[in-house]
């Protein structure tokens, strides 16, 4: 499977070491729409390919948005791309958030750090529906305020939906919550009959978040999470992203907790 050529339309810095690329297909040809929660494989010329979640508006056929943290050679090469520069793109791949199950439900979205990126298309999708946005509860935790993604958008969301943020470390001037994002959940009121929860963040944070939700009697069938493993081919052939009986690239990255809870609490799988 050969990548399509895309170019960087816009590049923004989220905070040092983390940036967002808005990319368009060469010659501005229409792009495949995607499901919130899916990912693309981004190829930096000669350096390699990395799986990066979609974080723009789904069903947009004009631009893909990807938020990327620089952690290795390939992401460093992607970081060096400037507006107009080209890259290869394969995708979209994977199974996304079950948007069809959100109708009529109270939505709980729990995001940690960069985990907000794969959830943003879901938030866009929910906001595009004619629904009571105050019934969308977002809990977002980050290391500190400067390391929060999409800060301008967070301010807008705070006006429309129920947003609670928390940081592990308060920097001077921070007026918000301090503490693990899961602490926000301990006092949150959740109707277990009528709520669906979506979680993405570091695995340990997802485990604690699930514990809190289970304490509030939310059934396992109402909890969805996005998993991360070493995805290489994205088509289920290379074997790298195997996680128990699943391939994260094609059976995930989004899973219903009910389907995978046995494996989720095992280590070194």
């Amino acid at each position: 499977m050969i990548p399509d050529i895309f170019y960087v339309k816009r590049r923004t810095e989220e905070y040092p070491g983390t940036f967002t690329l808005h990319i368009k297909k060469k010659d501005d040809q229409p792009q495949t729409s995607f499901q919130p929660g899916q990912f693309n494989m981004l190829y930096a010329f000669g350096a390699g390919e990395v799986p990066i979640s979609m974080s723009g508006a789904p069903h947009s056929t004009s631009v893909y948005i990807h938020t990327i943290r620089t952690v290795g050679l390939t992401t460093q090469a992607l970081e060096r791309l400037r507006e107009g520069d080209q890259l290869g793109v394969r995708g979209p791949f994977g199974r996304g958030w079950p948007v069809e199950k959100t109708t009529g439900k109270t939505i709980v979205i729990i995001a940690g750090g960069l985990g907000l990126a794969p959830l943003r298309p879901l938030i866009y999708h929910l906001l595009s529906k004619n629904r009571d946005a105050t019934d969308i509860h977002i809990f977002y935790g980050a290391k500190s305020q400067p390391e929060m993604l999409y800060s301008d958008e967070l301010k807008n969301w705070a006006q429309q939906l129920t947003l609670q943020t928390s940081v592990d470390m308060a920097t001077p001037g921070w007026q918000g919550n301090v503490g693990a994002v899961t602490s926000l959940l301990t006092t949150a009121k959740i109707d277990p009959e009528n709520t669906i929860a979506f979680i993405c963040g570091p695995e340990v944070m997802m485990r604690f978040a699930i514990q809190e939700l289970i304490k509030k009697n939310l059934p396992r069938t109402s909890i969805y999470l996005s998993m991360e493993r070493n995805m290489k081919c994205a088509t289920g052939h290379c074997g790298h992203c195997q996680w128990g009986p699943t391939f994260i690239c094609k059976d995930g990255p989004v899973f219903c907790y009910e389907e995978i809870h046995d494996w989720f609490h095992r280590t070194e799988v």
Binding site: V71, G72, G201, M205
Partner: peptide, 11 residues
Amino acid sequence: IYGRPENNKDQ
């Protein structure tokens, strides 16, 4: 948990 990893690999 949100800290940047030390090692130089992709993720």
